[in-house]
Write a protein that binds this DNA or RNA. Sequence first.
DNA 1: AATTAATTTTAGATTTGTCTAAAATTAATT
DNA 2: AATTAATTTTAGACAAATCTAAAATTAATT
Lengths: 222, 222
Amino acid sequence: MNYSTSEENYIKAIYHLQGDSRLVTTNELAEELHTRPASVTDMLKKLKTKKLLHYERYQGFRLSPDGKKVALGIIRRHRLWEFFLAEKLKFDWNEVHDVAEELEHVSSKKLIDKLDEYLGFPRFDPHGDPIPDQSGKMHASFQVGLTELPPDTIGEVSSVSNQSSEMLELLKHRNIGIGTRLEVKKKFEFDHSIEIKIRNLPSFTISEQLAKNIYVKYAKKS
Amino acid sequence: MNYSTSEENYIKAIYHLQGDSRLVTTNELAEELHTRPASVTDMLKKLKTKKLLHYERYQGFRLSPDGKKVALGIIRRHRLWEFFLAEKLKFDWNEVHDVAEELEHVSSKKLIDKLDEYLGFPRFDPHGDPIPDQSGKMHASFQVGLTELPPDTIGEVSSVSNQSSEMLELLKHRNIGIGTRLEVKKKFEFDHSIEIKIRNLPSFTISEQLAKNIYVKYAKKS
DNA sequence: AATTAATTTTAGATTTGTCTAAAATTAATT
DNA sequence: AATTAATTTTAGACAAATCTAAAATTAATT
């Protein structure tokens, strides 16, 4: 019932890649974890013997129900620590990820449940992602990609899917964070860039690549 | 500048065993870490090449100044987490050790310094042991072994040196914790057992073995 | 359909940390 | 002082997690 840091990192990455249960490939996972395909194959075999994975060689793989449960436990720990770091220790929301990456592997269940209680059973982490409860349930957040927002509507940023430091740096520079209310002014067909406006600031344009990674909740025009 | 969990456990154990710089032996350390002497020798060589240890084969060893600095950093992390667990998450003071043992290996300096600030720069952990500050300095606690307290004096429990779950269980059963004020009634020469009294409770006797592991600060008779 | 390209797996090596068994060294005892 | 006992180290093996290079399989293309 206890897994190594390495196993946990694989399980978590597979969970994120498979989304709603699609098959994941060896190369994809190798790239995600900055490792080599051969190493991935080795770990797949191990996770299969532990019954966490559905896997037939050359055919791709996905988590078993047990594997999903384990993944949700890891994600729960990760997001609770992120919440703690931002809310209590006053970390910037774009600094919490890497530290939480380490803390998530401390496996005491009692620790996590008490932390959860201490934090007031939060339902979303500082990136807007939902935190699974003790049984693995998450409250769905009604978020939609920024690219899907029609012109002249307002959204509130609820999460960002890519958490590379490069992108977080760009977001910070643009004054975009979780909770930021932004209005879509125009959408350009040519390169799918989007012109947006925040509060009283002059409007500016963001690339499709960036917009794709920003998720928002609808909000009424203010 | 970053060490593995295993290396950190060795460094910490050596620090505790060497006390005020006495030489530590291979067997001692092997027993402390529940490992084999051969494994200890392997690690000693590694720590020596990293200049954390003064070590000549067959001659015993002790931490170098650099090694001591590393040890104090680990102890700082351990004791801050213990304080957090007891103070914020409401763990019993006898449950914090094992969880802190895991948390102490998360190495982000920023995390620890922010945690320190959040906790209000505490100077002692829940066992009464001093917490090193960022530069490695500790406030000495003026504690004395319970066995050294003469009859008819009162002491306040400030720390316990043995933290086995067996002993902590016994202490809990006897209602002895950090901060407990107790009066020494009688000392028996025969087996060196000690009769003590806590508050209004009937007095009772504890073994020399237990008393040896309890440290107290003097307090005036109430 | 046959060939080429891409992906995935296997085989074998490496590093870290551990182990057992045997050898080397130091300490204790007759 | 010589022998015995205890401690410590070395030598060689093993498990976990990784890697490179080569082989096997699947996918794409002529």
